[in-house]
Design a binder for these strands. Structure first.
Lengths: 142, 142
DNA sequence: CTCTCTGCAAATGCTTTGCAGATAG
DNA sequence: CTATCTGCAAAGCATTTGCAGAGAG
């Protein structure tokens, strides 16, 4: 499914289908949420020689092709995940770093209110909430 | 107002009140939203010799003192702003880069729903929404 | 006077770029 | 075959750290 669409998208632009590109896309799909470095680690398990540079270049390419997206969670590294229908909102725990997801539908009322009152159209696919997950922040208030 | 509280907070910890610290705090208060580099630029207009290193160290200090907070908007650089009562949610326009604010009260229903259903406590002061502001994204659907 | 701050320069970590050989089509 | 890819090494940024002199209290 993804391999063939990758091939098509590449060929349509005169670009080439390579093992690295397939592996990197697959890694992003498998990992769900991953930084370039995590993708690198995952890909290396299958093909040891793949360079981190190629990860960066390919993630950028896959994003241009519309197959993946990235978000900036808290600090430094961007997180990549598959693009497409299943847009989701990230719930990032400040304590344990866990990344959970929630249904973007829950954003709908707020998004509509902002659009109506401010003319601001929220990009629902890029929303991240920071806070404390059930496991970490339950008892304490701070 | 802020100078005296800065002095107190510093003295309470055996730390010192310096010109740089006052200028940097003032810059953050004036700028509203600013990256370390923007703070640096602003401070330099008054005191040319202040080093970027001092900006980083002081912003970290001011944050520890509870006077400022930072958020990570879209790419790399963190954005600092005054902490305190007036918590707000950022609305960042992907087109023109403008940073607007909205009343965090609007987040309340959603935050409560998340707490109830998932046990996730959203840190409302650190929420940022990306999208298109009234000026930029009005006509097109994109 | 003492202990904290600051500026400078070098180190670090993540990401990007240049180039020549490897390879898809 | 030819133009695109990849790996390697080096360059770039933003941020951090070490150190010795400057300065607050």
């Amino acid at each position: 499914m993804s391999d063939s669409s990758l091939a098509e998208l590449l060929r349509a632009r005169g670009l080439r289908l390579t093992a690295q590109r397939q592996l990197i896309l697959q890694a992003v799909l498998d990992l769900g949420h991953a930084t370039p470095e995590q993708v690198h680690t995952a890909v290396r398990e299958v093909a040891a020689g793949v360079n981190i540079t190629t990860i960066y270049r390919t993630l950028e390419l896959l994003e241009r092709l519309g197959l993946v997206t990235h978000t900036h969670l808290s600090h430094g590294s961007p997180t990549y995940h598959a693009a497409g229908e299943d847009q989701h909102v990230h719930l990032v725990c400040r304590d344990c770093g866990a990344i959970d997801e929630m249904d973007p539908e829950l954003m709908r009322p707020l998004a509509e209110q902002l659009a109506r009152e401010r003319g601001f159209r929220v990009d629902i696919g890029h929303v991240s909430f920071f806070g404390h997950c059930a496991r970490c922040g339950n008892g304490s208030q701070e």
